[in-house]
Design a protein around this nucleic acid. Structure first.
Lengths: 164, 164
DNA sequence: GGTCTGATCTGGAATCAGTCAAGTCTGGAG
DNA sequence: CTCCAGACTTGACTGATTCCAGATCAGACC
């Protein structure tokens, strides 16, 4: 996890001004990959005191636009952010609790960008989401029993994404 | 595209009661693959007159649960539905206009369910979204110029998903 | 260090997809 | 034809996200 000076360095390298909310947001995402916006807001406030949600949304958008963060949004979930942007990795999402885990790209470096047909589209990213059930939800089938057969639309509050 | 009796047959086969809203919703999705909820509501109302949005939401959920429809939701887009559920195909989404196109699964039948690591998860579905720019947006770079470098978060109103 | 300027932040309100709850209606089994 | 579980209507609500206008601030230049 990068230190505060590292984070400032990163921001400057991306031609972004260094502000306390930005540093805090970037630190929060580094600390809690796949965190949702509300968790990030909470974490930033724990760090800095009162910060408007608008500031956090703006910062997230700026950092995502600069390529410092990546936004992921599995069906039925709110937007989540992660700081691992260098590689083309994918995600496994638990249908029961919404927990997200990283997976390396199955096919190598920049690989899976060649679909069977491209319909004339210029492809620049392949986003793969594996849906399944995480180990802890498999172990506790009570909670998993009520889940939807297809895409889950319930409010997810995965252990992994909540801050302790 | 199935006729109205075909649709009723399909509903009965899925142990669902045949109601006018259900037939209309199923017909609308067959007619307009990748349509968003609002478009479906509009189409159903054009067909039946006043129908509550709640009814359409309920019907979409029931049909999705019964496996008659598949729900897809690319990041930054609203929920979309399609009636092609038999195979495990994927989608190409245009970053500029949000248009969606189908792609057959690159690896065969039920293939891409084996990620590089599974972290103990039990995988049952792999959802692949290719991000790129569609031919018409490539041809008209004016509109495409302002797009986000990463995931688009603007309100998409793709030609393909709107009804003519 | 002081000043300027454009980017950023604040606070509030608006928007919009989706959900909830309670009452009414109806398809289809008997 | 009757009945009733399931489907639909109505209306309000939630929660995520965006928009706006004015205040503040970081960084560059003097």
């Amino acid at each position: 996890m990068p230190s505060s000076p590292d984070i400032e360095q990163t921001l400057r390298a991306a031609q972004l001004r260094v502000t306390r909310p930005r540093v805090a947001v970037l630190a929060a995402v580094h600390a809690h990959p796949h965190a949702d916006t509300q968790s990030i807001i909470d974490d930033v406030r724990r760090d800095l005191g009162e910060v408007s949600h608008q500031a956090v949304y703006d910062v997230l958008q700026a950092l995502t636009g600069a390529g410092l963060l990546r936004r992921i949004q599995p069906s039925g979930s709110v937007a989540r952010y992660e700081a691992r942007v260098a590689d083309n990795h994918h995600h496994i999402v638990c249908r029961a609790c919404g927990a997200v885990a990283d997976v390396d790209c199955a096919l190598g470096e920049v690989p899976c960008l060649t679909p069977a047909q491209h319909h004339g589209y210029t492809i620049d990213e392949a986003e793969v989401i594996y849906w399944g059930v995480c180990p802890s939800c498999s172990a506790a089938p009570i909670g998993a029993a009520g889940m939807q057969a297809h895409t889950p639309s319930m409010r997810v509050s995965p252990d992994e994404a909540q801050f302790p």
